[in-house]
C-alpha cells in the first residue's frame, strides 16, 4: 500500500485524478481517497497536522504487511523556477534542528534537495534549499511505521523570489499535474519496493491459523515465525502445510517444520 500525504486538496488533486482514487465516506478525521494499492490523505497545513494524519492512517492500515509513503506538495525556493520538481534528500525542522534523511531509491532523474520545514510561512529564502511546512512532521511520523527507503518527499516549487503561486490553488494543482509522469514513475518504483518488503512477511490470516493450531509459548512462537517465514518464502504451500500439521502438538509442529527447513536448506 502506497500512501500519499498532501497538506491541501489542491496538492492532492492531480494524484486523485491520475489514479482515479475514490473518496472514502467512512472517515471524518481526515479527507481520505482510496484506490486498489494506494490511498491519499489530506492532512491540512503544518507539521503537526501532517504527523497526525500519517499516524491516523498508519493505524487504520495496520493490517498491511508494509506501507510506503510519499509526501507530495509545493515548496518555496530562492531561485528554482516554479513548477520544478525535487526529491527531498534532507529534511531540517527549523524549530528543533532535528534532521531526517529519506533514502531515495530507483533510477528516476528527479533532482535532490534539502528542505527546511518552517512553522509559519516565510519569504526569507536561502540559496541552497527548499522551504515547506509539513516534511519534518511527515518524516517524524512515517519513520515509526516504515523504513527510510519507503518514505519519500516530493516537492514542486510554487514560490520563489520572483514569483508566488502558492496561494493560487488551481495553479498549485496545475504545477503538480505538469510533473505527474515523473511523480508516477517514482510512485511505481516505491510500490515495487514495497511489494518486495511485503512479500517477505507471511500473510497474517495463515499465521493466525498456524498459531491457533496448538498452545505455543512465546519462545516457540519466535522459532515458529522463523521457520514459517523461511518455508513460505521458499514457495512451500501454506494451505498444505497447515493441513499436514493439523492436530499435532506445538513441539511436533516445530520439529516437523524444522526438518522441512533443514532438508530444503542443505544444498544452499
Amino acid at each position: 500500500m502506497l500512501i500519499w500525504v498532501c497538506a491541501l486538496h489542491c496538492e492532492a488533486k492531480p494524484v486523485i485524478d491520475y489514479y482515479r482514487l475514490k473518496k472514502s465516506h467512512d472517515d471524518n478525521a481526515f479527507d481520505l481517497y482510496l484506490g486498489d494499492d494506494m490511498a491519499c490523505i489530506i492532512s491540512g497545513i503544518g507539521k503537526v497536522a501532517c504527523a497526525a494524519a500519517c499516524a491516523w492512517i498508519a493505524a487504520r492500515q495496520a493490517q498491511q504487511p508494509s506501507l510506503a509513503w510519499i509526501n507530495l506538495g509545493v515548496a518555496g525556493a530562492a531561485e528554482h523556477s516554479t513548477g520544478s520538481l525535487f526529491s527531498v534528500t534532507q529534511v531540517i525542522d527549523t524549530d528543533t534542528g532535528q534532521r531526517f534523511y529519506p533514502a531515495p531509491f530507483g533510477a528516476s532523474k528527479i533532482a535532490g534537495s534539502a528542505c527546511e520545514t518552517l512553522s509559519a510561512p516565510s519569504d526569507d529564502y536561502r540559496e541552497d534549499r527548499l522551504f515547506d511546512m509539513e516534511a519534518s512532521g511527515f518524516m517524524y511520523s512515517c519513520l515509526r511505521f516504515s523504513s527510510a527507503e519507503l518514505v519519500q518527499s516530493l516537492k514542486v516549487i510554487s514560490d520563489n523570489r520572483h514569483e508566488k503561486t502558492g496561494n493560487n490553488r488551481p495553479q498549485v494543482s496545475l504545477l503538480i499535474q505538469q510533473q505527474i509522469s515523473a511523480i508516477d514513475a517514482q510512485a511505481q518504483t516505491l510500490l515495487q519496493l514495497n511489494e518486495e518488503v511485503a512479500a517477505l512477511v507471511p500473510a497474517s490470516a495463515e499465521w493466525q491459523r498456524l498459531t491457533a493450531m496448538a498452545r505455543f509459548t512465546q519462545t516457540q512462537k519466535n522459532r515458529l515465525r522463523v521457520l514459517w517465514r523461511y518455508l513460505l518464502n521458499r514457495n512451500f504451500d501454506a494451505e498444505q502445510l497447515l493441513q499436514q500439521h493439523a492436530g499435532q502438538t506445538a513441539d511436533g509442529i516445530i520439529e516437523s517444520l524444522q526438518q522441512l527447513s533443514y532438508q530444503d536448506s542443505e544444498s544452499l
Partner: peptide
C-alpha cells in the same frame, strides 16, 4: 548532501539494510 556527523544517516534504526 552535507551532514554534521555520519551517524545521522548511518545509525537511525528505521532503515532497511536489504533494500
Amino acid at each position: 548532501v552535507e551532514i554534521e556527523h555520519y551517524g545521522e544517516v548511518f545509525n537511525p534504526r528505521s532503515q532497511n539494510f536489504r533494500l
